[in-house]
Every structure is written in C-alpha cells, then in structure tokens.
C-alpha cells in the first residue's frame, strides 16, 4: 500500500442503521486505525454487532436493514455504487460469535477463500497458504497431522481458531470479530486473546466483547455504545481508568448493563 500509514484504515461518519422502521445505530462516527485493536463494548442490544456488520456490508444480507452515512476503507466509500462487495469482504474479514466452520475438511475450510479469490498459483502454493494461515492462527501444530478430518470435529476453541485461519487465508486488511470468545472456556479464550496480540499490527482488528477485562487486555482503543449511539471513544487505558462520560463509568464498573 502506498497510502500514508498514519491515516486511519477505516472511517465511519454519521452512520445510521435501520431495521425496517427501527433505528439500531444513530449518528456513529469512528476511526479504525490500521495498527491497533479496537474494542466495541456496551450493553446487549445497543447495536455493536449491527455497526460491526456495516464495516464489511454483511448487513446487505439482512433484507430489512438499511445503512445511511459514509464508511470508507483506505479513503474509498464502501457503500459507493461501484464498490465490489466481494472484494470488500475479502479485504475486511469477519469472525463470528459462534464458530461456524464449513462441514468440510480442515484443509478445505482454510483453502476455501484462497480458491474463490484465485490467490494460489498451484497446489503447492495453496498448501503453503493453508499452512501459513493455520500457523498464524496458532492451530498448525495441533492439527497438522489431520488436515483431512472435518472442521466440525474440532473443539469449540479450535473451531474458532480455524475460522480465524480461514479469514486470514484470504489476506484481509481488517478483521472484524463479533464476540469471538463468548462460546469458549477460559483456556480457549486466553489462546484467542494471545492470537489477537500476535495478529496486531499486521491487520486492523475490531473486536466486540462483553468482557471488560478482555477489552482492557487486547485493545488499544475502546468504543462504548449505548442505545445505538457511540457514547465515548478513546484510548483503552483512558476509558478504563478515567472515563469522561458518566454512563461509560457506570457500565465498566458494572453498575448496569
């Protein structure tokens, strides 16, 4: 990329999202920096997932959803008419709350994206991509002897790392994670958090979490959402030690939410 690396990776300006007549996101503006992990926190139903899904246009798959405002990736409007959604989603990958490996072999799960986007120059190249993605997701050593077994036969934590590997394999620039650890036990969670640390800097990462400690541990920036609005967005250390807003303070100290 020849762009100025000090510019934000993604910028959102005055974003509104409606589900039919209900507004789920109201006037949210935020920057996602390329070398940082950004955490979205807030009470259930405040619109974190909805906003996250506007960043790779996954809301397009919800018939009732409508997005207003402006979201840019490296300065290009992703909702512009000439934006290729397929390319966008290859550049902005996503990991879901519930691990959702395809009912295919581990190898095929990871090879799926590179195949679709024609990233490999041959079988050997594809093998290399798969191995690299699985290694970066910290899964390679555990499963390198059984690449042919079904992805759905792995443990929940392994499945989630497989999903991360699957997303990494298409060489995205941004990775969106929607509560990636909520279905996992503490050990698997710690493993994913480690992984996020390792991936930081290589990808811009946005993570939605209900776990305050997790947000504090993995992120550099934290955004607090409440009732569809962005209440406060600042350095994670500031948000957790010295929040400006009363509502943020109440939420992170567990007074409600």
């Amino acid at each position: 990329m020849t762009r100025d690396d000090t510019l934000p990776k993604m910028t959102a300006r005055h974003v509104n999202v409606f589900y039919g007549a209900n507004q789920a996101i109201a006037d949210v503006s935020i920057d996602v920096r390329r070398d940082e992990v950004t955490a979205f926190i807030g009470p259930s139903g405040c619109g974190k997932s909805t906003f996250l899904r506007t960043l790779n246009r996954m809301n397009d798959t919800v018939a009732a959803a409508r997005v207003e405002g402006e979201i840019r990736l490296d300065g290009a409007d992703i909702y512009a008419r000439d934006m290729d959604v397929v390319q966008l989603r290859a550049r902005v990958g996503m990991v879901f709350q519930k691990p959702n490996p395809f009912p295919k072999s581990i190898y095929e799960n990871v090879a799926y994206g590179p195949r679709i986007h024609g990233l490999a120059k041959g079988k050997a190249d594809l093998d290399r991509i798969v191995e690299e993605a699985l290694s970066r997701a910290g899964l390679w050593s555990e499963i390198k002897d059984r690449l042919g077994t079904s992805g759905t036969a792995l443990s929940g934590g392994q499945q989630q790392r497989l999903c991360i590997a699957r997303a990494i394999a298409v060489e995205p620039e941004v990775i969106l994670m929607d509560e990636p650890c909520s279905a996992l036990d503490p050990i698997a969670t710690a493993r994913i958090e480690e992984l996020i640390h390792e991936l930081r800097g290589r990808y811009a990462i946005v993570i939605v979490t209900h776990n305050m400690q997790q947000a504090a541990r993995v992120s550099q920036k934290t955004a607090f959402f409440h009732l569809g609005r962005l209440i406060e967005y600042a350095d994670t250390s500031d948000i957790f030690t010295n929040p400006r807003e009363e509502r943020t303070k109440d939420y992170i100290t567990g007074r409600y939410g």
Partner: peptide, 18 residues
C-alpha cells in the same frame, strides 16, 4: 443448513452462487 454457514462463506467474499 444453518444461516451461519452462509454468512461464513459470504464474509469470505464468496458470491451467493459460489
């Protein structure tokens, strides 16, 4: 087939027919 399968594929940049 769970909707997550479809979402997982679409989120990787696959088209609906793929």
């Amino acid at each position: 087939v769970p909707a997550e399968m479809r979402d997982g594929s679409l989120a990787l940049g696959a088209t609906p027919s793929e």
